[in-house]
C-alpha cells in the first residue's frame, strides 16, 4: 500500500538544489530510459484499464438504465436506481420517504468496519511490536504463522468461527460448564459475530504493514525516550506511534476498505438478517432483480471508500507536518 507509506515517509523532502546541468549524452540516456519505462508499464496499464476501469464504466452505465423484468437492464435512460439508494415511495400515496433499511445497512457497514479497524489496531499493534522485537530467525517464524490462515478457504474459516460462537458451540458450552452463565448467549447472527469474523479475517493485513514500520524503528529512540524521563506510555505516544504511523495508516486502509465491502463474513455470521453493503448489492443483482440499483449502490460504496481514504490520508499528513 504505497498511498499511505509514500506520502508520509520522512525522506521525501529533498533539500533545495539548483537544477543540475546535464550534457547532451546524459539527456539522450534519460530520454531512452523514459521510453523504456513507458514500455515496461504497458502490460500493467492494460490489465488495469481492462479489468478495473472497464467493469467500473459498465457499472456506471447500468446505474443510469432501467431495470429489466427478470434482471438485467433495458436500454432506456433512468435515474430510478440512484433514486432508490436512499429513498423510496410510499406504496399507497406515493410520498417520498427515506429508505430506512438501506440507511441502516450503510450505517452498520461503516460502524462495523470502523470497529473492526480499531479492534485490529488494538490486537495488531502489540503483536507487531512483539514480532519486531524478536531475533531475526524467530521473526520469520512468527510472520509465517501469521500468514497460515491465508492457506485455508475463507468460507471454511468462517464456518469454523460459527462452530465456536454458536449457542451449542465451544464458547457457550465452556461458559456454562464453568458456571458463568446458565443459558447460552446469542452471539451468532449478531453484529458482534460479524465484527469478530471480520477482525479475524483482516487482522494479518493490519499486522504485516505495522510490522514493516516497526522493523525499521530504531529502538535506540525508545531508549532515548526513557532516558529523557518519558514513562512507557509516553514513549509509546510521543516516540513510537509517530514513527510507525505510515504502517498504521496503511494497515487501517487495508482493513477498513475490504471490511466495508465484505460479503462472505456478514452473510454467514450475520445470517442474512444483519446485512452489510456487500450483501445488499448482491441482493439487487440476485433475488431483487434490480441491476441499476445494485450498480448505483456499488458506486456509492466506492464513493464512501474514496472519501474515507482522502480524509484519512489528509489528517495523517497534517499531523505529520505538525510534528515536523
Amino acid at each position: 500500500m504505497s498511498i499511505g507509506g509514500e506520502s508520509l515517509s520522512h525522506t521525501t523532502d529533498v533539500k533545495p538544489q539548483g537544477t543540475p546541468r546535464i550534457s547532451g549524452y546524459e539527456a539522450a540516456a534519460r530520454k531512452a530510459e523514459v521510453h523504456r519505462n513507458i514500455l515496461l508499464t504497458i502490460p500493467a496499464l492494460l490489465v488495469l484499464v481492462l479489468a478495473a476501469s472497464g467493469p467500473l464504466l459498465v457499472m456506471l452505465l447500468y446505474s443510469f438504465l432501467a431495470p429489466g423484468d427478470y434482471g438485467g437492464v433495458v436500454w432506456q435512460p433512468s435515474v430510478d436506481g440512484w433514486f432508490r439508494v436512499f429513498l423510496t415511495r410510499d406504496i399507497f400515496d406515493d410520498t417520498l420517504m427515506l429508505q430506512d433499511a438501506h440507511v441502516t445497512i450503510f450505517w452498520r457497514s461503516i460502524k462495523l468496519s470502523s470497529m473492526t479497524t480499531v479492534l485490529c489496531i488494538l490486537l495488531g499493534f502489540p503483536t507487531a511490536y512483539f514480532i519486531a522485537t524478536r531475533s531475526d530467525q524467530t521473526r520469520n517464524l512468527w510472520l509465517f504463522l501469521i500468514t497460515i490462515p491465508f492457506w485455508t478457504n475463507l468460507l471454511i474459516r468462517t464456518f469454523a468461527i460459527m462452530e465456536i460462537i454458536r449457542n451449542e458451540g465451544i464458547v457457550n458450552n465452556l461458559l456454562i460448564f464453568v458456571g458463568v452463565i446458565d443459558v447460552p448467549v446469542q452471539m451468532l447472527y449478531t453484529d458482534f459475530a460479524i465484527m469478530v469474523g471480520m477482525t479475524y479475517v483482516y487482522l494479518p493485513l493490519m499486522i504485516l504493514p505495522l510490522y514493516a514500520s516497526m522493523e525499521k524503528l530504531d529502538f535506540g529512540l525508545v531508549e532515548a525516550g526513557y532516558d529523557l524521563y518519558a514513562t512507557r506510555f509516553r514513549v509509546l505516544r510521543r516516540v513510537i506511534l509517530p514513527l510507525v504511523k505510515p504502517g498504521l495508516v496503511a494497515g487501517s486502509i487495508l482493513v477498513f476498505i475490504p471490511s466495508l465491502g465484505a460479503y462472505v463474513t456478514p452473510r454467514v455470521l450475520g445470517g442474512g438478517k444483519n446485512m452489510m453493503l456487500g450483501n445488499l448489492i448482491e441482493l439487487q443483482f440476485g433475488q431483487g432483480q434490480n441491476w441499476p440499483l445494485g450498480a448505483a449502490l456499488s458506486i456509492a460504496l466506492l464513493a464512501i471508500v474514496m472519501v474515507a481514504l482522502i480524509v484519512y490520508v489528509r489528517t495523517a499528513q497534517r499531523s505529520t507536518q505538525a510534528h515536523g
Binding site: G220, V239, H323, G324
Partner: peptide
C-alpha cells in the same frame, strides 16, 4: 548516544 538517537519526527 553513539548514533545520537535524535527523534526524527521533531
Amino acid at each position: 548516544f553513539q548514533n545520537y538517537a535524535l527523534f526524527p519526527h521533531m
